[in-house]
Structures are given as C-alpha cells and as structure tokens.
C-alpha cells in the first residue's frame, strides 16, 4: 500500500536475553520488521515463541532480568527518529512515549485493570499524564473515548469498578485506555483471546474502524490465523525467537513457504472441509531457547527436514516473490532469488 511513507517503527535485529543459572535464555533471537502509518502487521506464532517479549521490548516494559539488544527506531510525533532501546526503561523520555505515542492492549482485560480504582479513574490517568492537566477537560476526553469504543451510558460507567464490568466491556475499556491519547502505534497483544467469538468480531471491527479514523499503525500479536486474515496487511510468522516467514497476508495465505507456516495453516479448521478430515497438528512443542543446537530451530518438528543440511546452519530469510520472504533451505531451491 503506502510504500513511499517512512515506517513509524523499524525493529532491527532485536534480541532478548535472560541470564539464568543454567545459561542464557534467548527467547528473541534477531527479529526485524517495520510498520508504516495505517498499516497492520500481524505477528503470528505459538505460545513461547517470543511474540509478547518482542512487543514488550518495544515499550521497554519487560522484567529487569530480560536484556534487550539491537535497534528499535521509532519516529515520534515531532518527526525525529529515536532508538527506543537507548532510553532508560524507567526514565522520563520513554514514559512520555508510553501510552501517548505507543500504547498497548493486553490479552486479559479482567486483570489489566486494578480492582481498586474506577474504570474512569484509570483511563483518565492516561490523559492526565499525557494530554492535559485540566481535570474537567481530561474527563471530557475520557468520556468521549469511552463512548467511541461503544461503552453505553459512559457517564455512569466512568464511576464503576472493573468487577462491575463484563469481559467484553472491560476489553472495550482497555481499548479506550490504549487509544485515548491517539497513539501513532498500537500494540495489540492477543486482544481477543480471552473473549467469546461474537464479542471477538465486534472488538476487531471496532479496532479496524478506529484505526481508519486515527491512521495509526498496529502491531497485532496473535496465534489465531483467522483473525490475522481479517485484520492484517502484512504477516510475520515467528518461531523460536526468529521470524521464519514474512510477506503480505495474501502472499502468505496463498502460498505458505515455510514448513512451520504450512503446519499452522493446516491446523485451522476450514468451513466446507469434509467432516472426516482430521486437523493437522505439528508434533511436539517449541523447544526452550536455552543452549540451542546449531541448525534450523524447527528441525526437530519439521516433516521436510534434510539431514546434514538443516541441522548444520540456521537458514536466513530469503526473498521470494514481491515482499514474501521465508527462512528455509527448500525455499532457496525453488525461490526466484537464485
């Protein structure tokens, strides 16, 4: 779509290390991507593949024991580009960006709010911190955003506590809290996982509509491929801390190249498929990113592995058609890059 515009965020070779007694855990091992204004990038992968750590590294809110390295260039409202990783994670500069320019929606709305304060108080805190010190004006902005995300009777809801909200309403409130300062980048970490399917669709539509209005970029983290197809312009598939395949949603859905992506696609139930077809499942689980052997991270679980090749070196991302890239030795043979 808008190839000419500068990306809002450019993540370059992001690594997250966790020092443990047994050695160094490397849950994120060199992730790179960029997102442009108005664009949605879907970050897809199983639990434990490093999606959430990647997103939290952008905001600098990972636990202290997680050390991030690499570069995260963010273009602020003033047009200047800064490396977020260079900022002190507890300092003023990054706090001025959090919630204001980059904000995040968390996966479980029921625990994302403190039970001790009203919803209004907690959303209002955002505007008080970033937009205005005037209490009346701040409350007005908060109420407007609560109405916008579809919270009926916002004036009354403003003074209610999280335990008086339903799950779907809490997720709306959480979205209101993330969007109230009109951020340039929204990170949505599995925003609909904890909700039932009908509410899911409503929430996703709401997010799309608000994205159009505000022209913000979205990093959409999920393991649900159906949601990705609905929401995302581009997709990055993550496995064991690396991006193994990336491209536009159309490219990836049409012709998944990496065996892992193909496995993921195979494990989605499609309407119209014969009843007796068993859903495909990938054997095993994501290994622990500790003392990794050389070779492809997917080697143990891959049904297309080539002994003597795949267990020697980890393949790099190779450009195939258009923006479609994949990291697999099989792609090298078939792809146009060679």
């Amino acid at each position: 779509m808008s190839e000419i515009t500068e990306p809002i965020i450019r993540v370059n070779d992001l690594r997250v290390n966790i020092k443990m007694d047994e050695g160094t855990l490397t849950p994120v091992r060199g992730v790179s991507f960029e997102i442009r204004p108005g664009e949605t990038l879907g970050l897809v992968g199983e639990s434990g593949c490093g999606k959430s750590l990647t997103s939290k590294a952008i905001l600098g809110i990972n636990e202290k024991k997680c050390q991030s390295s690499g570069e995260i260039f963010f273009q602020g409202e003033d047009g200047k580009t800064i490396d977020l990783l260079k900022l002190n994670p507890r300092g003023k500069e990054i706090r001025a960006i959090r919630g204001k320019q980059i904000s995040m929606i968390f996966q479980e709305p029921m625990v994302a709010f403190s039970p001790m304060y009203t919803i209004g108080n907690q959303i209002n805190e955002c505007t008080m911190l970033h937009i205005t010190k005037d209490k009346k004006e701040s409350k007005a902005i908060t109420l407007e955003m609560m109405k916008k995300v579809g919270i009926a009777n916002a004036e009354k809801r403003y003074d209610q506590y999280p335990h008086e909200f339903s799950g779907g309403m809490l997720q709306r409130a959480l979205i209101a809290m993330a969007l109230v300062c009109k951020p340039r980048l929204l990170i949505a970490d599995e925003p609909t996982t904890a909700l039932d399917v009908t509410i899911q669709a409503q929430i996703l539509e709401l997010m799309q509509q608000l994205q159009k209005e505000m022209q913000m970029a979205i990093l959409f983290i999920t393991h649900d491929l159906g949601t990705v197809a609905k929401m995302c312009d581009r997709v990055a598939v993550m496995y064991l801390g690396r991006i193994v395949e990336t491209g536009t949603a159309r490219e990836i859905y049409k012709a998944p190249q990496h065996p892992y992506t193909r496995g993921l696609m195979g494990s989605v139930h499609k309407i119209g498929s014969r009843k007796l077809d068993r859903l495909y499942s990938i054997e095993g689980t994501v290994p622990l990113a500790l003392n990794l052997k050389p070779g492809c991270g997917f080697y143990e679980r891959c049904d297309a592995r080539v002994e003597g090749v795949c267990d020697q070196a980890e393949p790099d991302l190779i450009q195939l058609e258009g923006t479609h890239c994949a990291a697999c030795v099989h792609c090298r043979k078939e792809g146009k890059a060679e």
């Binding site: 809110i61 959090r98 968390f106 994302a112 805190e125």
Partner: peptide, 20 residues
Amino acid sequence: NYVLCARAKGVSEKRIVYKY
C-alpha cells in the same frame, strides 16, 4: 498484570507502587 498495564500507560514506578 495491571502493573504492566500501568507501566505501558507511562505511569511512573513510584506511582505504581503507591497508588496501585
């Protein structure tokens, strides 16, 4: 989790500890 959420809002550590 609400601590993480407050942090993502840009709330300072001190306020997280004492308010929440």
